[in-house]
Each structure stands twice: as structure tokens, then as C-alpha cells.
Design a protein around this nucleic acid. Sequence first.
RNA 1: GCUGGAAUCGUCUAGUGGCAAUGACAAGAGACUGUAAAUCUCUCGCCUUCGGGCUUCGUAGGUUCGAGUCCUACUUCCAGCA
Length: 371
Amino acid sequence: MLKFDIIHRDGLARTGIIHTPHGDIKTPAFIGAATRATVKALTMKQMNELGSQAILANTYHLVLRPGTELIEKAGGLAQFCSWCKPTFTDSGGFQIFSLPDVKITEDGVKFKSYLDGCIFEMTPESSMQAQWAIGADIHMAFDHLAKSDSHEDMEIAMHRTHRWLDRCIEEHQRLAASHSNQDEQFLYAVVQGGIFTDLRAESAKYCTTQPVDGFGIGGVFTAKGMDEMLKTVNKILPEDKPRHLLGMGQEPIDLFMGVEHGCDTFDCVGPTRMARNGSLYTKDGRINIKNAKYAHDFTPLESDCDCECCKNYTKAYLHHLFRTDEITAKVLASIHNEYFVVHLVDMIRESLLADKFEEYKEEFLSKYYNC
RNA sequence: GCUGGAAUCGUCUAGUGGCAAUGACAAGAGACUGUAAAUCUCUCGCCUUCGGGCUUCGUAGGUUCGAGUCCUACUUCCAGCA
């Protein structure tokens, strides 16, 4: 079983350590989104230097390219991309939601590859096989995230997710038994149910009864209604296993709320995507560095930020790099935004340990959202 | 000096009788949450009660119901010849 030690609690919130074969993750923690085995625009050295504890890659994307056999041959995901710390893989379930041309059956999903248009299938079993080949420390169960948000469709998707979870567990155990490193890869169940508390409760209860190492909470999109939903789910989920809030963390309030209601890890593409598009975090809110007003601003993005970008460069320079569409614009912006969220969750962890979570939350959010 | 050709929004450009006028870039702003995203959207002559109104295609005239488009002159630029 995946070892998870809780060090300190404050209501539903907790700080702890997830012990993985590739090292420890101090929680709560922000996990970098490295969909195609890279955090876009950043090297693993830069990710390491900015304080990232772990990365999350995507099974769907890696199955398509470069293929799981190649990653296995390379010695696994961590070795392949030169990341010596813990790794997660998402199952590909999210792509049922995010990609067009998907056909869902009880057996699995037929995707139309965005690379060459050919149809290929993913099932709970094939996702588990692919994730074992990729060899991340923590795997997600293959779940169904419904495109519709009606109660009826959510319920159907949730039940399917539960039936698929049974198959994921069976396949995961079979694969574990056939691998010499059987205690080195772990499985999280994914809780679904959309915005409906009754479904979330049912899903959390179902997942709780299953022999898994932790939980992903999926299908969350906005902070609206997140409080109640997370409270409901995390009160049901067993305390002694880690919980990952899938895909949330673009807005600082998501991270505070997630931690407050018992989530341990987060991943989100928002920080790096926004960085590439010129939207940069500051403690006074996000700014668009491309705006004309920054052309002559020779101060750093944040004078009290310790990232490589803020330590060395001015807003005027960043503005210039974006205006001239230089690659370095995206690199420096990504360093800053990724540092910002990683560091924010680190600070939240420190505040919990010092029993000052509420004060820190109030102070940060009032400044950030100017309220 | 002669002979051709050309002048359209900050730039380049489409346009050969119905046009406030094409496209690109630039510019101004916005969006982005388990990444088909170094992507996408909006604005880009002036005014507007959003119905429309007004002024525009080097300048000045003319033909025509109607001219960026045809005619005349002028101005400037380019090419060739002197």
C-alpha cells in the first residue's frame, strides 16, 4: 500500500507526507501538469529549481505518442523525461470529456486520434496496462467524465465509472502480480458525480469500499459549489489515504478551498497555459503582461518573488519578449506562474503547520481578489 | 524632357460602376481549471438613442441615378529612353 502519514490537522484540512518509490511529497502540494511528459516550456531542471515536488503525465497522449513500449524501454516515465521525483499519470478518462468524436460503450471508449484520425480504443484494462508500462508512481482509474451536466447523465457516467473501477482494480492487481516491482505503482479511484451532492456522496462511498491507494476527485470545474461538494466527499473518504483534486488550481481560491476541505494534491494546466498566453499571477491578482502599460515598467513582476523570472527580469523586458513573440517569454512566464502556484500551496502547508491557515487565507485572498 | 506604370485605414494588400471598402500584419483589450491551446475571441474612419447618421480610396474638376473603379488636368513616386 502507498504510505501516507498525516502530520497535522485543522478540521478537514491536513498536512502530511506521501511516500512514493521516487521520494516523498509533502502535502498539500501542487503537482505540475506534464501531459506529454514535459511541462510545456520548462525543463525538468527548471521545475526542480522552482520547487515542484511531482509531475502528472497523461496516458492518452503518451499512448498516442511516443507509445508506451518506448517509455517502458526508456526505463519508465521518470527516467525518460529526467525527472527524479514522484510521478502521476492521468488515465485518459478526461479525454472522453475534452475531445470530440468519442464513442462510449460499456467496454470502453473509441477515440478518433487527433494525430492521424484513426480510431483507437481505450478500456479500463488497456489504461491500466499503459500506465504500468509508463511506470508512474501513482495511477488514476479510467473514469467517465460526462459531457452533459444533467443529473441523469451524471448518474450514468458515475455508475459506469464505478463498474470500470472494478475492472481497473482487477487489472491493476493482475499487473502488480506479474511485475517484480509490484509494490511500486499505486492506484487512485476517481470520484465522480458532477455538481450533485447525492451522486458525489454515493460515488465517494463506493470508492471507499474499494482496495485502492488514494482518491482522485474528478469533474470539478469551478469554485462555485465546490465547498459543499468537497466537504461531502472528503467526510466520506477514509482519512488515511491521500486525495487528489483533479484539474483544479488555476485560481488561488481553488487551492485554498481544496486544502480547507481535505484535498492533499492538485494539478492544473492553467498556470502554464496562462503563462504562455501572457496572463501572469501576482499577489494583487493576475495581470496581462502584453498590455501597453507595462512597456515602460522597469520593476519585476513581483518584487518579493524568489523565482528566476522575478529575480532577474523586469516587466518591460517580459512585455518586450511577448510582443516580439520570443520563446523566452513563455519560458520565463511559465517559471513564474508555476513557481507561484507551487509556492502558494507550500505556504498554505506552512500556515496549516503553524495553525494559521484561516489568517493566511484571509490575507492572501483579500489581496488577490481585491475584496 | 519623352514614354509607360502606380497612388486605398499605422504598414503591406484586395478591389475595373452599387462600397465604410478585402485579407494579413501591427495596435487596443478579453478569455483560458485531470492540455488537440506558443491557442481562441472581440475592437480597429468619426458619431450614435444601435434604427442609423456623417466623412473617406493623392489633389481638383467632369461623366453617371450612382465613382476607389470611367474621363481631364495637376501633384508625387517607380521603370525605360534621352
